[in-house]
Amino acid sequence: MSVGTGSLVTVTATINGETRTFTVPGHRTLLDALRSELGLTGTKSSCTEGECGACTVMLDGHAVNSCLVLAAEVDGHEVVTIEGLSVDGGTDLQQAFLEHGAVQCGFCIPGQVMSAEYLLSHNPDPSVEEIRDALSGNLCRCASYNRIVEAVRQTAEKRVSTRG
């Protein structure tokens, strides 16, 4: 085997539904690659140690802290960022955030939205306690916590009733 002669890695991954290829140093995190190499600045950088949740993205359908994933690790995998979730005029969840006053300074909100969508993807009708549990890795210093919980509850109710 060979450990490789250079430290650069070429990564091909599905990012927000598109196949993207980029080359990064081996230690470059997914967070930095998304923001610098791919121009996807909706994913925010704050603690860079997996404590704040601002950099949450979906990797193969699972919420992860992109600061604790190497860009090289996503070769052959699928990543969805906040840009990949968003539609013109906002998703129902994003609109619910606005209706309930959940967006204040806004810096943590893309991460909150990703974690909430991940929760709803496997638990379509979560209780308030389950929402608090599921989102407790996403810090909000404006402390919009109760606003966000209301928004997630309302979205869950609407989605469940629409799907019948």
Binding site: G50, G53, A63, L68, A134, G137, N138
Partner: peptide
């Protein structure tokens, strides 16, 4: 252990 996102990894 950690948060949901941590436990996923």
């Amino acid at each position: 252990v950690g948060s949901v996102a941590i436990r996923n990894r």
